[in-house]
Amino acid sequence: MNLLVLLKMVPDVVEELEIASDGAGLDMDVARMALSESDDHALEQALLLKERMGGTLAVLAVDAAEVDDALFTALAKGADRALKVDAGEVAQLGTRALADLLSQVIADGHNLLPVDLILTGTQAIDDLDGLMAPLVAHQLGLPYIAIVIQVTPDPARRVASVVKEYPGGVRGRFEIDLPAVVGIQSAERPPRYVPVAKVRAAMKTQRIETVQAPTLADGGTVLAEVKSMSKPEETGRAEMIEGTPEAASARLCGILAERGLV
């Protein structure tokens, strides 16, 4: 199996997010970037498949803050190759433009083809103008399915059996022709932990292949313009219970008692 995982860095929402002075984007000097959570699951699923079935695993990302860390971490976890697309000013690119870039890089070769499965996260928290997996599938003319929690390839038949989530705990099994693009919701196991020492070792012994960004026909697709950003209005916001934890829990207990909930 030749596996390719597309990774995307997103602002870490555990940190405080600040809005830039132009009011139309995040202040990227303040934001800390982290690997998109479902991309981390896509990587884990690919690692599991490689362990089970052999083959090669490459990871590909467009340059962004902290992306080297994410790529070296992928190498330390067991990826064979890590490629980074140098696109200059990339912070402001939407998912659509990122997908255009990645699709073109894949189509250009870079020894990424032939590929059997392209895995990426189902959805990222900043996929404002589209989702990565269906965009790449569209550009490459490959079938696509997402919200996937299990992938079982059958290389001999050139198909994979995939399980996707529906609402209410119901799941659905599909068969998809290979090669295909699969949007992963959750890997079969939680993403593995890799010690920092192992990532450091990967930084010393392995390398990230840098690919110059291809020139896109129309300069990349930008079809949605962010006019303004703001923090959510505080209407209907919770009444905050202040004080020490002891005082707060006592107050809350009182509220629950009033409503007959204790």
Partner: peptide, 12 residues
Amino acid sequence: LYGGKIETKVAA
């Protein structure tokens, strides 16, 4: 956006 932390106004 961002898991509910930011709201945006977007023109097509």
